[in-house]
């Protein structure tokens, strides 16, 4: 229960960062928080906590996302489901490389779905303009990679989640001694 509560608080903090802090920063310093946090939580935590954090953050962001038509909560639920599936069946080794790869895939899914849904909004709703990525989009990818890597190393250092358990092979294992 406490962990779920912590996930909600983390989601709220990420939401406030994405709504209030990030847009006020200069364009080259608009550090994304949602995606690295989601990617790391999928790798290092239970899917249920990732979902709670993502839902809380995206619900808050969605309240202030009024520039374009967007279904941010549904988009991100889809992205989290895809990333969880990928981490279970494809990028299964819990290394920094697979974490970064998952983060990059999630970023492109976010951009692609945001673009497509905002364009669909022009056709079916009153919105007149679609979402476009920042012209220095590569900076977002750069921050994703840096934050996921740093977060991964931090979690690996502080916990034993990513350590491979190697059992010392002795004669006792084989019933010799």
């Amino acid at each position: 229960m406490i962990r779920i509560l912590l996930s909600i608080i983390a989601g709220l903090l990420i939401g406030v960062w994405e709504i209030s802090v990030r847009p006020s920063l200069p364009s080259g310093l608009q550090i994304p928080m949602l995606l690295p946090a989601v990617a790391l939580s999928i790798i290092a935590s239970k899917p249920s906590r990732s979902f709670v954090m993502t839902l809380t953050a995206t619900m808050l962001i969605g309240l202030y996302q009024v520039f374009h038509f967007d279904l941010i909560v549904f988009r991100w639920v889809g992205i989290v489901l895809i990333i969880i599936s990928l981490s279970r069946y494809w990028l299964t080794n819990r290394s920094v490389y697979s974490s970064v790869a998952l983060g990059i895939i999630a970023q492109f899914l976010d951009w692609g779905s945001h673009y497509a849904i905002s364009r669909a909004g022009i056709l079916f709703t009153d919105f007149t303009r679609g979402w476009v990525p920042q012209y220095i989009w590569y900076m977002t990818l750069f921050y994703d990679v840096v934050l996921i890597s740093l977060g991964f190393f931090f979690i690996a250092r502080m916990t034993s989640r990513f350590q491979i358990s190697v059992q010392k092979q002795t004669g006792a294992n084989y019933g010799i001694l």
Binding site: S20, V66, V132, Q134
Partner: peptide, 14 residues
């Protein structure tokens, strides 16, 4: 001003 979206062709504030 509680939000902004100032990209290359777009310029809005909330």
């Amino acid at each position: 001003v509680i939000g902004r979206e100032i990209k290359d062709r777009q310029a809005y504030i909330l």
